[in-house]
Structure formats: structure tokens, C-alpha cells
Nucleic acid binder design. Structure first.
Ligand SMILES: [Mn+2]
Ligand SMILES: [Mn+2]
Ligand SMILES: [Zn+2]
Ligand SMILES: [Zn+2]
Lengths: 136, 136
DNA sequence: CCTTAATTAGAAATGATTTCTATTTATACC
DNA sequence: GGTATAAATAGAAATCATTTCTAATTAAGG
């Protein structure tokens, strides 16, 4: 947890009770959650939680790399805690049964400069599968 | 073009004037277009074009692999003609300047069965870059 | 303790996408 | 070519996740 809070500070994001609660929730659950999921969970802990601030917090924290944006077939927003070493290129896999998110370091694309005549500026890889718990 | 129409038939999608026009437009342009882009273009050719049928056609034709769904940062829907051999695993790259879409066959992930304990069921890779024309 | 800018809640707006229904059309079969 | 059938379509309306706006609150640094 300290690791994440330090990163907030380093990026001039204040340590607010809402942000801490979001990080704790995502750490505890291990799953990718929607803004709505998160607001509902926080509603149990706080008297008031607004959607705009949940949305903004999730967006801000994913922008600085503390959270990862997870793409799902319903095209809604999902966020998970990003647990990998920040300097190691990686992507994420989500379990389609339970939503648990794992880190995937098997990607060499960041080495490639040009593919099919295009100079690559970015790439996004999202995997889906069945985690070891759900696969038993 | 015949290749695409055959694939429609094979999948029990009727050859309608709107579908042919969408395919011709995407083939001519080479870019990923939004449903709105496409409706606007078709509006010049047909007296009436409804959004629901544009949306449904794009979705149906991408479901059978004639079109490719392209992910962009604005999270809206975009579609492009899929030009690769249908039996060859591949992904797509879009030029962030002009929107032109290219086929990318450099992906070995379909060989991997398990990563980080997850049994992989699907993966989505979307690249972005600068095409050879725009890079001059 | 003060100052200041960031954060937040609440209410309202937004707009891309979907749903619904009646009409039209492509296609298979005779 | 004519007919039957299911698919495709237009139009209007609804949906609803996300964003915008504004005034009040709060974290952090001096
Ligand atoms: Mn990560
Ligand atoms: Mn393709
Ligand atoms: Zn990568
Ligand atoms: Zn692949």
C-alpha cells in the first residue's frame, strides 16, 4: 500500500480517504471493478460518495500507473490495481469467471520500432482467460 | 470485393445495397471509420440511411470477420475492412494521423495456452503508429 | 494556524448506442 | 416470373454510462 501512496505523492495527487479506500478495495479484491462497483463498495464506508469523484480518481490513478485500465467485452470502464514493477513492460489478463487480474510480462512488442511500414507509437494488449482457482 | 460478399453469403447475411456500399466505402478509404462517419457517407448515396441498421451491419460483419473492430482512445466504435488471410492469426494497426489500418501478423500469443496460471481463452491486441505516407 | 489549490458532492447534461415496431426487401423455392 | 419467408431497414424514442458545471470542503505546505 505504501508503494502506491508514494506514487500518488510523487505525482502530486493528494492522499485522500477516498483514494486510500479505492486502493484498499482493489488490493483486497484483486479484481477489475467498474466505477459503479467501486462507488457501491465505498458507499458502505462513507456517508457520501459521488460518481464524478470516483470516475476522476480512477482516471487519475490509472494515468500515473497505479491502476490499470482493463478492457472487457461490454466496453465499459474497469480498473484494477497494477502490481507489476513499474519499469517492466507488461499487460494484464482478466479471469472471465471471477474477474481476477494478473500481470503478463510476455510481450516483446515494445522492442519493435516498425511493423508493416508503420512506426509504432503504442500498443494495447488485453488477455482474457480462466485463472488457476476457477480452472480447478 | 467478391471475397467479402461470398463470406456474407456463407454466413447467411444477405447482400444488401447498404452492406455493399459500406464495404466499398471501407475498401476505398482504407481507414477505420465510425458508424457516424459511415452513415454520413452513405447519406450522399441513399435517400435514407438509419443509424440502427448501420450499427447492426457493422456489428454483424465484424462478427463474421469481414470487418475488424478498431479500438481508439476515445472508446467509440470504429470499423475497418479486414484484408488479411482469414486463417492467419493477426491484429491491426491504425495510423494516428490518417486513420489508415494495416494488418499485423507478428503475434505468437495464439500458441500460448497458459500464462501466469491463467488458461488463455482470448486476447486482443491493438497497435497505433504512423503509416509510411504520414511518416515521410 | 493560514493559504491555496486540489478534491469533492450534487444536480444536470451529454451523446453514442440500443430498443422497439411497422414496413420493405433479399432470397430460396416452385 | 411469381410467392412465401425471414432478414433487413427506417424512424422515433429510450437508455444509461460518463462528463460537465459549480459551490463547498479538505489536504498539504509554510
Ligand atoms: Mn500491471
Ligand atoms: Mn485484418
Ligand atoms: Zn506490450
Ligand atoms: Zn494475437
Amino acid at each position: 500500500m505504501k508503494k502506491y501512496l508514494d506514487k500518488l505523492k510523487k505525482n502530486n495527487l493528494k492522499i485522500t480517504s477516498k483514494r486510500v479506500a479505492i486502493l484498499e478495495l482493489l488490493e483486497r479484491s484483486g479484481e477489475a471493478l467498474s466505477p459503479e462497483d467501486i462507488r457501491n463498495e465505498l458507499a458502505a464506508k462513507f456517508e457520501k460518495v459521488s460518481y464524478p469523484s470516483v470516475y476522476k480518481n480512477l482516471e487519475d490513478m490509472s494515468r500515473i500507473g497505479v491502476l490499470a485500465k482493463i478492457a472487457r467485452p461490454d466496453r465499459r470502464l474497469y480498473y484494477a490495481l497494477c502490481r507489476a514493477r513499474e519499469d517492466k513492460h507488461h499487460h494484464h489478463i482478466i479471469c472471465s469467471k471471477c474477474g481476477k487480474v494478473g500481470e503478463v510480462e510476455e510481450c516483446d512488442l515494445f522492442r519493435r520500432k516498425v511493423i508493416n511500414g508503420y512506426r509504432i507509437t503504442s500498443h494495447f494488449l488485453q488477455l482474457e482467460g480462466i485463472c488457476s482457482d476457477c480452472g480447478k
